[in-house]
Design a protein around this nucleic acid. Sequence first.
DNA 1: ACCTGAACACCGTTCAAGT
DNA 2: ACCTGAACACCGTTCAAGT
Lengths: 255, 255
Amino acid sequence: MSIAKDVLTTTLSRKQREIREREQLILDTAQALLHQHGYNYLTMERVAETIEYSKGTIYNHFTSKEDLICSLCCRCISNLIEIFERACKYSGSTRERYSAIGIGYSLYHQLHPMDSQNIQTVKNNAVREKLSVEKLAEMEALEFEIIQLTQSIVQQAIECGDLEKKYEKDISTIVFGLWSMHYGALLLNQSDIPLNELGFNPVVTMLWKNTNCFLDGYQWQPLSTVSDPNKLFDKISSALFQDELKKLKKCTNNT
Amino acid sequence: MSIAKDVLTTTLSRKQREIREREQLILDTAQALLHQHGYNYLTMERVAETIEYSKGTIYNHFTSKEDLICSLCCRCISNLIEIFERACKYSGSTRERYSAIGIGYSLYHQLHPMDSQNIQTVKNNAVREKLSVEKLAEMEALEFEIIQLTQSIVQQAIECGDLEKKYEKDISTIVFGLWSMHYGALLLNQSDIPLNELGFNPVVTMLWKNTNCFLDGYQWQPLSTVSDPNKLFDKISSALFQDELKKLKKCTNNT
DNA sequence: ACCTGAACACCGTTCAAGT
DNA sequence: ACCTGAACACCGTTCAAGT
């Protein structure tokens, strides 16, 4: 009985599971093509060939090439949100948690450069122009989630006095400051401007320094001058990327 | 004799002048198509039709569609450099001049949103992948010019003591801070994230506030707390965009 | 109900023919 | 020496036919 029921429910949902799995397969394939051979190599034809289905089937999952790319982007933003949630849960002062968001952002992009390329691809007008309003709304909802998470920490900082009350009207400005600084840095980093040849330090290092000065400028307590910023960086980054570091350790132990 | 010589030299260079003029015409046309109907409406065919030449002729000027778009982008960056040069010449403290760079950047993008869209278009991988190394080098050279202009002000600030000596090793980091903050803000602004619906202040306002806090964090003298930042903004922006404001005045007087 | 792939549309690019 | 536009290549998208 129990087995029969299992079989029944399995049978009922198998098709759905198959479809869901194939959708992930398409996304994985598209991501791999994009990452390995660049944007112009990614064609619907090639995705179809790789997964051994016809082009028509892909269009059953995604209404257009742009829709496929945007879905890829949404998956990457979801991964990023997960990091941000970890940062919010970090046990430390409000300033440490806010810093953790920045660190999570920049380290995530360093650890997963292809994800960050995917996210940028959708910012392009040629792609955006072809997206449906529904798809754009889906992406916007994810971006909104990120803003909310970030904003909540600034709010808490004001409530507990780490940030002066007079900055209450600047909450969204402070969010925008961290966001624009990191977003801009990420894009400059992955553009092919040869930053290190031009004498710039590593982007993660510069971002950390600049974020600290930015928050010091808002007098967000405790100021970066009262403790060692480098130690704090290591502390937060190892806390945020515990899982990733574990994986790396495992790999090196096995070999 | 003199006339004959004039005719001769005119004849000799007429072709060249014609070609140069046509090149600008192609760029203007492409920009107009891009601005009025979006990226996907801009085709080589349509550009050819509009300027009443054949497609082959356009390929005599530009080796590919991407080459055309990149040339458009370079023209826009040159315009931006002109603003930056004005900012560097601004008579005021080093901090005021550095601020002027930021203000020039954000106001330029506000006054010429289509230029800033052009600049962004080339950041897209689909376009970059197809560019020749020469074209990329041309753009890089322009970007380098911007960096140099910005860096020179930070250098001066350290020399005259407006910035503490200990920040000498952070010069490029301070440049990167202003750059990433403004670049990120610009991109967020022209993406279709509805910033004002999400409760954000106007981007130019937020940038000015954040830049001041950023520079305060580096203790760049004089701090924004000793004078009215809003007055300074108005002073700098009217000095930088004198020409533009004159034009606007003329227009309103004539009508 | 789902999958297929031939056929179509569109656009970037080339090059033989024309002036 | 320069310009033209037919012809080609490539790729996104559709949909009648098949299972």
